[in-house]
Design a protein around this nucleic acid. Structure first.
Lengths: 177, 177
DNA sequence: TTAATATGAATGAAAG
DNA sequence: CTTTCATTCATATTAA
């Protein structure tokens, strides 16, 4: 069965690394090259690319596989949010030395413990820099606030590509706003 | 025949016992007590615990075994998502509205203990009257993600072939819907 | 053993 | 920007 004019789904997982088996066509599945480049840009300080930058990045990344501008937009949004979330709330290595008490509380007493009577606020410790270095080194904990390197798009890529620049000027606007 | 080309986590279980006692590494393996308490909390109506709740739960569950905050976070995410998914697939009839979005009738005392900061979407409505139908006296926007119609209009990003259009094409705003 | 299932973890997409 | 939803992937568990 060929799906005629849809032309949206690419069944063949040509060198797809993340889509190990049976890659669905529903959502964007970035290739390793795409992820690598995006990560590189992020590490370079790019956090919130402008529309123009998104367009350029998308054009560049389309060389490695199917991609749209919104994918780039979402990628940066998610990546930034999750880096922040890790550093702020759910750090995976917060308590390595869990307090070992003698008796485990029962379910009932546990429930009672959650009863808050006063605004007992947990002080959230912002880890400005990772002090905890156990045995597992986090390769990516770096976070440089290079503010906004917005208009240095000339130095974003050094690749000499073909003239794949035929993406129309993209207007990133949210229709549900 | 899987080649197992993922080099993310080291497979630890090589025919050993359940990870309850001697899990080397890999992913979190909850104990039966942990699962029991988590399930009880879920059944009591807890769907999306806050960061503070997650911390407390994680601390308490650490009595029964190794656990981290992100495990609790993921557990509730997965449990909620899969219950919803199951309900969606089970009800092929015209029961489109997802019932389990709201909290369960928390008659248990355990649930009330957890409702510390965000009881629900009901802000100043006391629990004098039972939980009634949706969208009755609630000016909040009703989400129109009924059933599966997520792919009807995915035109979040609009391509404008002209340049510098002053007004959005249609701007069908349904924020007041 | 392998196959099927259950579930922890991750992430793209989207809503708030 | 923050949070949540939906889907997918990887692995543990169980069944055959």
């Amino acid at each position: 069965m060929d799906e005629g004019l849809s032309g949206f789904c690419i069944r063949s997982s040509s060198g797809s690394v993340r889509g190990k088996s049976g890659t669905k066509c529903g959502r964007w599945n970035p290739t390793t090259e795409q992820v690598k480049l995006l990560t590189e840009l992020f590490r370079s300080g790019l956090r919130t690319p402008s529309t123009d930058q998104i367009q350029k990045i998308s054009t560049q990344l389309s060389f490695y596989g199917k991609i749209e501008s919104k994918n780039v937009f979402y990628w940066f949004q998610n990546h930034k949010a999750r880096e922040r979330q890790k550093n702020r709330k759910l750090s995976f290595d917060d308590h390595k030395d869990l307090i070992c008490r003698q008796n485990a509380p029962s379910t009932q007493s546990l429930a009672e413990m959650y009863q808050v009577s006063k605004p007992d606020r947990v002080i959230e410790t912002l880890q400005l820099f990772p002090l905890n270095s156990f045995g597992e080194s986090e390769p990516e904990k770096l976070r440089l606030r290079a503010s906004e390197c917005r208009d240095n798009n000339n130095t974003m890529f050094s690749y000499t590509m073909g003239e794949q620049m035929e993406h129309p000027p993209l207007d990133l606007r949210l229709s549900f706003l």
